[in-house]
């Protein structure tokens, strides 16, 4: 990276507070594919000049997969530890790179003592576009390109956020095509509810293949995602269909960064 990503510890040592904390998430931290998205989110934050910071090694799992797998103990242990860190840094506003982290911190942390303004990175991108701080210029042109957006369950149905990611794509002047099952009726990629970490039960098809088949029906050049788990599932599906050359699966942050030459 051409710039240094600031951590909360550094900011605190300098007696400063960030405008917003970027909660990276486990996938964004460790998964190679998702790390690219994380860096692109940082590039966008850096580009528009928002004062932000990450927790770095002080971050830890929100507890979402533990909760969805039924281990409320482990979830609350994680949650309370994280809340202690977040409150210790006097965090007010958080942007997450993952709809699961977003949902957990926004909805499930307040009851355990952690109340913050939480947004997903697609909402941040939409806000920046609305404020005129972010455009789609200086980089790759997506004009007229066919893009279909896959709704992550925990952003869409889970929290009713359907417009922000689409607004972030509209600015590209691309051709947005919807899949048959979209928005409230969107089909899961197959990773939610801790499925990401286990083999699927016996069936006649994998869920991500069902979803990719549907995405490919729209004949897209790009499939836009907003979740690192969806990214894994959709990319695996594209690989399985041997369509890696024709169709690219990109996160909205990556598309935004590319369009701005970041």
């Amino acid at each position: 990276m051409e710039f240094k990503v600031p951590t909360m510890a550094e900011l605190m040592a300098a007696g400063e507070e960030p405008e917003i904390l970027f909660w990276v998430g486990c996938a964004g931290s460790y998964d190679e594919r998702a790390q690219k998205i994380t860096r692109d989110i940082c590039k966008i934050l850096h580009h528009v000049g928002i004062k932000y910071a990450v927790l770095g090694t002080e971050e830890s799992c929100t507890g979402d997969p533990a909760k969805r797998a039924g281990n409320e103990f482990l979830f609350q242990m994680q949650a309370m530890t994280n809340i202690e860190v977040l409150n210790g840094y006097n965090i007010k506003k958080i942007v997450t790179g993952c709809p699961h982290c977003f949902n957990t911190i926004k909805n499930e942390y307040p009851g355990l003592g952690g109340t913050y303004e939480v947004i997903h990175h697609t909402q941040l991108i939409q806000d920046l576009i609305n404020e005129g701080k972010l455009k789609a210029e200086g980089g790759e042109s997506f004009k007229g390109k066919k893009i279909t957006y896959h709704d992550p369950c925990y952003l869409g149905r889970g929290n009713g956020i359907y417009e922000a990611p689409r607004k972030a794509l509209e600015v590209l002047d691309a051709q947005l095509v919807e899949m048959k099952r979209c928005k409230t009726n969107g089909l899961c990629c197959g990773a939610g509810g801790a499925q990401m970490f286990k083999e699927p039960e016996k069936g006649n098809k994998d869920i991500n293949v069902e979803r990719i088949d549907e995405a490919l029906e729209t004949n897209p050049q790009f499939i836009a995602a907003g979740c690192p788990f969806c990214m894994t599932m959709l990319s695996d599906g594209i690989k399985l269909k041997d369509k890696e050359q024709e169709v690219k699966v990109l996160d909205i942050a990556e598309i935004t960064a590319r369009a701005n030459g970041l």
Partner: peptide
């Protein structure tokens, strides 16, 4: 996965010390 969260604070078996390595890429 639950064991990983308990021990490494992440659902995968990675070391917590490596959590910020993404910034070096």
């Amino acid at each position: 996965m639950l064991g990983n969260i308990e021990n490494n604070q992440a659902p995968w078996k990675y070391s917590p010390a490596d959590r910020f390595n993404w910034a070096e890429g």
